[in-house]
Each structure stands twice: as structure tokens, then as C-alpha cells.
Simulated assay, not measured.
Amino acid sequence: MADPLTEQMVSEARANNPAALRSVYEALAPAVLGYLRSKGCDDPEALAQEVFLTVFAKLAAVRGGAAGLRTFTFSVAHARMVDDLRRRERRPVTVPYDRLADTRYTNSAETAVLESTLAAELLLEGLTAQQREVLLLRVVADLSLEDSAAVMGKTANSVKQLQRRALIALKERIAEKEAEERHVQLPQ
């Protein structure tokens, strides 16, 4: 898969070319938004906007071309996610139940679970926080080992080991779920 973020695009964005800045945003925003959503941020769209405001303000200082910009962008996204988490821990928000806003009645239970992030969360719940972080950075954000290591403040080898252990744990968890489903579906 070709990287939508090109060296020329980054170079032109550093020169404050509006079209290039838009192209950088369009190349990176979906992955940043996916990362922030998967981390459970309250308002991932607003946080993504904050990320790009910071990135564009510091674009001239970013080194390493397209790869450096991608790493810097996800470092900023990670920092905003941590800030959001800390803010929510200080001031938890409670929302009253609104029956009219509850959309669960439209889908069957199976469809709702399969289509929701709950299914992914259930698969990931057996993993450590660092293993989940590695999978999100490597799969959702599509970062390399080195870029993921830079975001997490670890070595590439430790990220590789975390990813390997996470994938083994996921494989075992999926096998257990499939075995449970086969056992439940057997006629008695």
C-alpha cells in the first residue's frame, strides 16, 4: 500500500502551501482519528483538530521527511489522548439515560456487537495496556516498528516483542471464542 504522505507534500507544507497542508491533513487525519477513537477519547474529532493545529504550528521544526512527520503527528496525538484521559479522571462526566437517544433497538444483538467497538474491546481486554497501545499504533495508525517505538518511548525490539505477545494472546482468545461458539451451537 503506497503511503499517501509524500516527501514533496511535506516539503510544500513546510512552505505553508495551503493545498499541501490540506493534503497532509487528508493523508494523516483518518489514522489519527481512528487512533483517538480507539483509545476512547470523549471528543476524538476535536482532539484530532488540536493535533493538527499543533503539528502545523511546528511543521518547520519537524525532521525526517514524511516518516518524521507521521511519527511526530502520532506523538502529538498520543499526548493529547493522555491529556484527555487525565482530564476525565479529574472530572468524570455523568450523563443521564436518554431513551430516545438509545439506538440499540434498530439492530439485532448479534449485529450490534459485531459492528461496535465493543467486539474489538472484548478481544483486546485480555491484553496489557502496552500491548493494546502497540497494536493500535501498528495496525490502526499503520506506524512502523521504529515510529511506534518513538511514540511509546521504547526500543524497536521491545515494541516487536510486545506486538508478538499481543498477537499470540489475541490468537488464543479468538480460538477460545470460536470453541465456545461451536460448543453452544451443538444440538443436545
Rank of each mutant, 00 (worst) to 15 (best):
M1D: 12
M1A: 08
A2M: 06
A2G: 08
A2R: 15
L5G: 10
T6R: 09
E7V: 04
S11P: 00
S11A: 13
E12V: 03
A13Q: 02
L21A: 10
S23T: 11
S23P: 05
V24S: 10
V24C: 09
Y25K: 07
E26G: 06
E26S: 09
L28S: 14
L28P: 06
P30F: 02
P30N: 10
A31K: 14
A31R: 12
V32K: 04
R37Y: 02
K39H: 03
C41H: 00
D42H: 07
A46C: 09
L47F: 08
L47R: 06
E50C: 12
V51E: 03
L53W: 14
V55S: 02
A57F: 05
K58S: 15
L59P: 00
A61G: 11
R63P: 05
G65R: 06
G65V: 10
G65Q: 12
T71R: 13
T71W: 03
S75L: 08
V76F: 01
V76R: 00
A77V: 07
A77F: 06
A77D: 10
H78R: 03
A79T: 15
A79E: 15
A79N: 15
R80G: 00
M81R: 15
V82M: 12
V82K: 11
D83F: 15
D83A: 13
D83H: 09
D83R: 12
R87E: 12
R88T: 02
E89C: 11
E89A: 14
R90G: 04
R90Q: 06
P92R: 05
V95A: 15
P96V: 09
P96S: 14
Y97H: 10
L100P: 05
A101Y: 07
A101S: 13
D102R: 01
T103N: 02
N107P: 00
N107G: 00
E110A: 01
T111A: 12
T111L: 03
S116L: 01
A119C: 13
A120R: 09
L122F: 10
L123G: 07
L124I: 00
E125Q: 08
E125P: 02
T128P: 12
Q130F: 09
V134F: 10
V134N: 04
L135W: 08
L135D: 02
R138W: 03
R138L: 03
R138A: 09
V139M: 07
V139F: 04
V140Y: 00
V140F: 03
A141G: 04
D142L: 05
S144T: 11
L145D: 04
E146P: 04
E146S: 13
D147L: 01
A149M: 07
A150K: 04
V151A: 05
G153S: 02
N157T: 14
V159Q: 12
K160G: 06
Q163S: 14
R164A: 09
A166H: 03
I168Y: 11
A169E: 03
L170F: 14
E172P: 01
I174R: 13
I174W: 14
A175F: 03
A175H: 02
E178C: 10
E178L: 12
R182Y: 05
H183W: 09
V184R: 11
Q185D: 01
L186M: 04
L186K: 03
L186W: 01
L186E: 12
P187I: 00
P187S: 06
P187H: 13
Q188L: 15
